[in-house]
Design a protein around this nucleic acid. Structure first.
Lengths: 332, 332
DNA sequence: GAAACGATTGCACACGCTTGCAATGGCGTG
DNA sequence: CACGCCATTGCAAGCGTGTGCAATCGTTTC
C-alpha cells in the first residue's frame, strides 16, 4: 500500500518564495494578494502539480462542497436521467455529487445518510425510500440540508419536491374518456411509493367522479417485466379494458408489448395506453407512448437552487408533469 | 447561511468522561480500548448523534475512501448499469463513489481529474474520454489509482479494462454468415471511441477474410436517433444489406425500428441485426435483439478488486462479451 | 515633511482527527 | 515481595488548510 504523496501548499510556498498564507489566499476567491505574488504562486503550483486539498478546506470551512445523492435502482431510465440532471447542475453550482446506492429498504437509506454526515456533505438528496426520523433529525440538527424528491412524509426543515401526480392521473382519465374508451384499468407495481399511489388514487377518483369503475392490478417491482404480467392479468378479465393507465413508462412498455404480441391487440384502436415519466424509450417508434413528462431539469434546478442559495422558507414545491401526446391514445 | 454544527469527538469524550483519544480509538478498528470505555463512548456517541468526520480522518490517513467516477451521458442504459454496478461494489469495499459528469471533451475529463485530486480520491475510474497525459501523470505521481474502462491509450501504472471487441465483431460476422446473409453492413456513430472502432474494424476484417465487402456508415452520436438515420442510409443503397452489425444496442434499436416501420422489412427474415451491450431494452419483446453482453459486473469487480487490494502488477485485463442469442438473427 | 490611509503579507491558531510515546495500573511469575 | 509483562489510557504532535490580527510598506493628503 503505497502512501499517497500529494503536494501541499507549504511546498508551493517554498518554491515561490512566499508564505503559506499567500498560497492559500491565491486560491481563495476574494482574498487580498498582489498580482505579483499571485503570478509566482500560480507558476509554482502549476510546476508542482498542486491542487488545494478540499478535505482540509472542508474541515476549516465546515463546507465540503459534497452533495449526497441517495437512490435505489439507479440504472432505471427515469432515475438515471434525474441523476444526470442533478450531477450536471450541482457541478454548475460548484458542488460535487456523491452517489449512494441503496437497496430500497429504509434502513439502507439511513445508512446512506450516516455516510453523508460522516463526509460532512452540504446536503443530501433522497430519491428513494424514507429513512427514520431519528436520522433525518440528526442531519437537520447538524445543519445539513435535506431534499426529498417524490417522498410524501413531512420533515421539518427539508425541501420536498413533488409532482401533481393526482391531477395528472385525472387528466389521463379525461384524455382516455375523450378517446372513446369505456373500460378503464390502472396497472401498478407493488412498490406502493407515494407518487405511484397518488397516480392510482387520482385515476380511481376520476373514475368515480364519472361513474366508472376502474380495474386495478398490482404486481411486482416497477419494471417492464411486471408490465407483461399486469397485461396478462388485466386483458384476461371478463370485461377487457380498452384503456390502461400505467404507473410508469416501463410498465407501459411491458403492457404494450404483451397486448400486441400476446393478445394481438392494435394500439391505439383496440387499446389505449398512457404512461408516466417520458423516458427515452417512450419516444421510440415501437412504442410511441403518450405519457406524462417528468420535469427532470426543473426538479434538479429547484433542488440545487434551494441548497446553493440562502435557505429560503420554502418547504415544498409542486411541479407539473405535462402530458406528451404521441400515438398510444386515439385522437390527441 | 447557517453554520454547520456537527458534534465532535471532544464533546463525546466529555460526556463519556474519557479522553478524546479513547473516542477515536473506539471508532478505529483494531485499536486498543477496554470493553468498558468502548461501551460508554458508544453510548455517548449515540446520544449525541456523533459520526466520525471522514474529512479529518482522510486528512490524517491520506486515504479519503472516495473513488471518482468520470463519465459522459450517464443516463445511457449501458453506462447507467455500469455505474450502478460500480457504486454497489465500491460500497461493498467500504468506498464511496463521487460522480462527475463530463461533456465528453477530453478537457472536461481533465477538469474532473483535477477535482478528484482536490478531494484526494483514492482512485479515479474513467468511463468516457481520455485526458491529457500531463494530468494523468499528476494523478499517478500523487499515488492515486487510475482505471480506464474501454479506453485504448496506455498509461503507465493505470489499470486498463477492455473487451474483446474485435473478436466479438468477427464472431458476429460468422453468425450472420451462417444465417445465410449475403450483404453486410456496419452501422457506426461518429464518436470514434476505441471500442466502437475496434468493432468496426473487426467486422470489416472478417468480411475481407471471407471475400465480402462490408458497407460502413457513420453518423452522429451513439443513439437511437442515429440508428434511424443510419438505417435510412444503409437500406437505400443499391445493394441493400440483409445483415447489419450495429456499434451498440441503441443504434440497433433505431435501425430495427426504421427497417420495420419505414421500410416494412421483417426481422429476421429480410434483415438480420446484431447489437452490442445487451441493454435492458434488447430483451424487450419489440426488439428481441441478438447482441453481445457487456460483463458489467465483472468489469466493476475487476476495477474494485484492483484498487481495494494491493496494487498488483497487472496492467491490463481483457474481458469477454458473450453473444446472447435472441430473435434478430435467423437460426441461432 | 509628517501624518493618515490602504494594500499586502506573515504569524499563529483553529478545524477534527489519528497515532507514537510514555505513563499507569493490574497481573502472573520467580 | 520484586520484577516484568501487557493492556489501557492520556498527552501532544501533526495532517493541510483558512483567517484574524498586527506589522510592513508605499502612496496620498494637508
Amino acid at each position: 500500500m503505497s502512501r499517497k504523496i500529494f503536494v501541499s501548499a507549504k511546498e508551493v510556498a517554498e518554491r515561490a518564495g512566499v508564505s503559506r498564507s499567500a498560497v492559500s489566499r491565491t486560491f481563495t476567491p476574494g482574498a487580498s494578494v498582489s498580482e505579483e505574488t499571485r503570478r509566482r504562486v500560480v507558476e509554482a503550483a502549476e510546476a508542482l502539480g498542486y491542487h488545494v486539498n478540499h478535505l482540509a478546506r472542508g474541515l476549516m470551512r465546515d463546507e465540503s462542497g459534497i452533495v449526497c445523492l441517495i437512490a435505489a435502482e439507479l440504472d432505471t431510465p427515469y432515475r438515471a436521467s434525474l441523476i444526470r440532471a442533478l450531477t450536471r447542475q450541482l457541478q454548475s453550482a460548484s458542488k460535487i455529487a456523491m452517489l449512494v446506492n441503496t437497496d430500497r429498504s429504509d434502513e439502507s437509506v439511513g445508512q446512506a445518510l450516516r455516510l453523508a454526515i460522516s463526509y460532512r456533505a452540504d446536503a443530501s438528496i433522497i430519491l428513494s425510500g424514507m429513512p427514520d426520523r431519528s436520522i433525518t433529525d440528526i442531519c437537520l440538527k447538524s445543519g445539513q440540508r435535506l431534499v426529498l424528491i417524490n417522498r410524501d412524509e413531512e420533515r421539518d426543515g427539508a425541501l420536498m419536491i413533488n409532482l401533481n401526480d393526482r391531477e395528472a392521473a385525472q387528466r389521463a382519465f379525461l384524455a382516455l374518456l375523450r378517446a372513446g374508451c369505456r373500460s378503464f384499468a390502472f396497472a401498478n407495481s407493488e412498490a406502493l411509493t407515494p407518487s405511484l399511489m397518488a397516480r392510482e388514487e387520482g385515476f380511481r377518483e376520476a373514475g368515480r367522479k364519472h361513474g366508472v369503475e376502474v380495474a386495478v392490478e398490482r404486481f411486482g417491482p416497477t419494471t417492464y417485466q411486471s408490465g407483461l404480467v399486469l397485461a396478462q392479468r388485466l386483458l384476461t378479465r371478463k370485461t377487457r379494458p380498452d384503456a390502461i393507465f400505467c404507473a410508469n413508462d416501463l410498465i407501459a412498455c411491458g403492457v404494450m408489448d404483451a397486448a400486441r404480441y400476446q393478445f394481438k391487440l392494435d394500439i391505439p384502436s383496440q387499446l389505449c395506453l398512457v404512461g408516466f415519466d417520458d423516458i427515452e424509450q417512450a419516444e421510440w417508434s415501437s412504442y410511441n407512448l403518450t405519457t406524462f413528462a417528468q420535469p427532470v431539469d426543473e426538479i434538479a434546478a429547484e433542488a440545487v437552487a434551494w441548497l446553493a442559495h440562502a435557505p429560503s422558507q420554502v418547504r415544498s414545491r409542486k411541479l407539473a408533469a405535462e402530458l406528451v401526446w404521441r400515438k398510444s391514445v386515439r385522437g390527441g
